[in-house]
């Protein structure tokens, strides 16, 4: 992190060799370098979840292109309030970033209006669909599929026959996690009870902790969270329960959350239903740099193309095997997971 701020760019990578293709989205004004930046939806780029994953994807892309963080390279701005969305986006536009990502559906209004005023800049919105703007690419994830596998993992692991789900804010996006999880549990054993709770926030670890503690006390031994920063509390609750001798698990979300489950004496992360926002950000940045930005289109990531998936953190061999079997079934279309 410690380095000079003087933003002298020496990157000489030529990315503009392929300038054919849909020329409607002209990118960087001069030179051949492409720049990209993202705006977070409230959490920081260190939220161990959604925003962090997006930022890591952008960093990876930037570094692979020999770019530096900052003007003419890659960058981020953090929003501490919804009122920051538009100013943040506009500041990036002014700093001439060619592609701007809105990380999270909360930014769709802001992205849409910024896109209208700045037809030459590429915009991408994650987890939402912005219609009628030719310079906006909408990115969605079939998270019901990865959540289905999380459900299978939970059902294969539970000893008590009860599992829990902690959601962030009740919205279409988080509902897909809930729906997928329930279907996965049901596929393995319809008798297992799924307890669903919502924290009403993506940033309240304390609420996540109290919800999860209640669940573990209620003999629900596997909890899947789809709650961003709130999920940190779910891990705390699980670790506390584990230290008291209970055998409990958490299924992480968005990123591989194995690290978050580590405590002295063990690890409570069973698996992680990953949603590779980073991959999406990386892909779109690459495409934008090649002038092939999918503006106006909706790009969907699913199990098959590795945009979502399940990571085995501490599953038993037999459970993991079952999960992989279901994974194949979903991929080849034998099982269709409903998002609702």
């Amino acid at each position: 992190m410690k380095k000079k701020i003087a933003a002298v760019l020496v990157a000489t990578l030529m990315v503009g060799t392929i300038l054919v293709g849909c020329g409607s989205n002209s990118t960087a004004s001069k030179g051949t370098k492409h720049s990209a930046a993202l705006v977070t939806d409230g959490g920081g780029i260190d939220d161990k979840s959604f925003n962090q994953s997006a930022w890591e994807g952008l960093e990876k892309w930037g570094k692979s292109q020999g770019l530096k963080k900052g003007i003419n390279g890659y960058n981020y701005t953090q929003s501490s309030d919804d009122a920051d969305f538009l100013p943040n986006i506009n500041k990036l536009i002014k700093a001439k970033y060619a592609t701007i990502f809105g990380i999270g559906y909360k930014l769709d209004n802001a992205i849409s209006s910024a896109a209208k005023e700045n037809p030459k800049t590429n915009f991408a919105i994650i987890d939402s669909v912005v219609k009628g703007r030719k310079n906006v690419a909408s990115v969605t994830f079939k998270t019901e599929q990865s959540s289905f596998l999380a459900g299978v993992a939970a059902a294969e692991t539970t000893k008590t026959g009860r599992v829990g789900f902690v959601g962030g804010i009740q919205s279409d996006i988080i509902k897909t996690f809930e729906a997928g999880f329930k279907q996965g549990v049901k596929a393995v054993n319809p008798k297992i009870k799924v307890d669903v709770k919502y924290a009403g926030s993506f940033t309240k670890a304390d609420v996540g902790q109290s919800l999860a503690t209640a669940m573990y006390n209620n003999n629900e031994d596997v909890v899947f969270h789809a709650a961003g920063g709130t999920g940190a509390g779910v891990f705390t609750a699980a670790k506390n329960a584990a230290k008291n001798g209970k055998k409990v698990w958490v299924v992480g979300v968005d990123q591989d959350q194995k690290e978050d489950g580590a405590y002295k004496g063990g690890n409570v992360t069973l698996a992680s239903a990953v949603k590779k926002v980073g991959t999406a950000v990386e892909d779109l940045s690459k495409q934008a740099a090649k002038d092939k930005f999918p503006g106006g289109k909706t790009v969907t990531y699913d199990l098959k193309d590795n945009g979502v998936g399940i990571v085995n953190d501490n599953m038993s061999a037999s459970a993991w095997k079952t999960v992989q079997q279901y994974e194949k079934k979903i991929e080849n279309g034998e099982i269709t997971v409903s998002p609702k």
Binding site: I5, G70, N75, Y76, T77
Partner: peptide
């Protein structure tokens, strides 16, 4: 507040 948003756009300083 508004100027602060610029800080991380133009430098590596966290806002």
């Amino acid at each position: 507040q508004i100027g602060g948003l610029s800080i991380s756009v133009y430098s590596n300083t966290p806002s």
